[in-house]
Amino acid sequence: MARELLMELQDMQINYRTRAGRINAVRSVSMDIRKGEIIGLVGESGCGKSTLAMTFLKLIMPPGEIVGGKLLYYGYDNGEGPVSVMELQGGKLRRYRWKEVSMIFQGSMNSLNPVMRVEDQIIDVMIDHDFPEEEARTNVDKYLSMAGMDPSTKRSYPHQLSGGMKQRVAIAIALTCSPKLIIADEPTTALDVVVQKQIMDQLKGLRDRLGVSIVFITHDIAVIGSLADLIYVMYAGKIVESGPVSEVCNRPRHPYTAALMSASPTLKGEKKRLNGIPGSPPDLKQTIVGCSFAPRCPFAFERCHIEEPQLKMLEPGHKAACFKLEDVK
C-alpha cells in the first residue's frame, strides 16, 4: 500500500543559541510523511520532538535556528512540484500555516487566548483563511463535535473549561481549515487515561474519515502502539529507529527502543515490572562522539564510543542505527 508523499523532511538540523552555548536540539532527522498516515514520534523529553514539530509550520524563532536540511511540501496539487517550506514568506507562509498544516501544541491548554470565546478562536482562523464568515459560523458546531466537545461550550471562555476540554478545543481548532497534516505534540499528556483514550480514538477517526495525515508526538511509546502506522524513535536529536508499528513494537531492534518499551506500561494492562532507563541523555551542548546512546547501552562495545552508527535498512521500511545489528548480519 504505497500512499502518496505529502511531506519530506531531509537531514533537518536545528540549534538553539543560548548564553550557555549552542544546543544541538535536532541533529539530523529525515522523515517521509504520506497522505492519510499516522506517524508516531517518540522519545524521552528533551530529545528535540517539539523543536522538530515547530519546523513543520516554520515556527522556529530565535534563539532557535535551522542550520541545515530541507522541508518539502507536496500537498499543493498545482503541478509545480513540491514547495520548500523554509522559503515560504509573507502571505504564502501565512496561508500555508493551518490551511495545509495545523498543530496541537504541547500544553495546548495554555495556547488558547484567554480573552476570546471558544467560537471566536475557531472562526477567526477560518475567516483569515478566506472562508466566508457565514460558513465559518455554521461550522463551529461541526468541528467542536468532531473533537468530542458539546457544541454548547462554544460560548465559553477558556478559563471556564477543564484541561481536557481545552485540549479538545485545541483539537477542534486544528481541524478548522481541513489541513492535510496535523502535528499533535503530546496532545494527551497531563490528561487522565480515559480522556487520553477518547482523544486518541477521535484522532484516529479523523484520519479514517478525512484522510488527514497526523504526526503524533509522545514520550510514551505504549500510547502510539494502537494509533500509529509508523513509528520514529528519537534520541538526542536523531532518529535511531523507524518502521511500521507492528515491526518496531513487536521486535524493537535498537537497544533504546527496547528500553523505551520496557519502561512503559502497556494499555492492554499486562503486568510487568517497569524499568526506567538508567542514566540520562547526553548534553546536547557538547559534540557527541560515537553513538549517543552508548553510555547508557547495556550492549555497547568499543566501536560504539568512537564511531557513530548510521540508520541501516533491516527489513523493508524498518531502519535502525546500531552497530550490534550490523554485526549480527
Binding site: L93, R94, N113, D124, D128
Partner: peptide
Amino acid sequence: GEDYMLMAMAKGLRVERIRKRY
C-alpha cells in the same frame, strides 16, 4: 512570550488581527 501567541502565529492569522485581538 505566551503560548497563545505562538498559536496565533501558527494559525496564520492576519497581522492586524494578531495585534488587536491577541
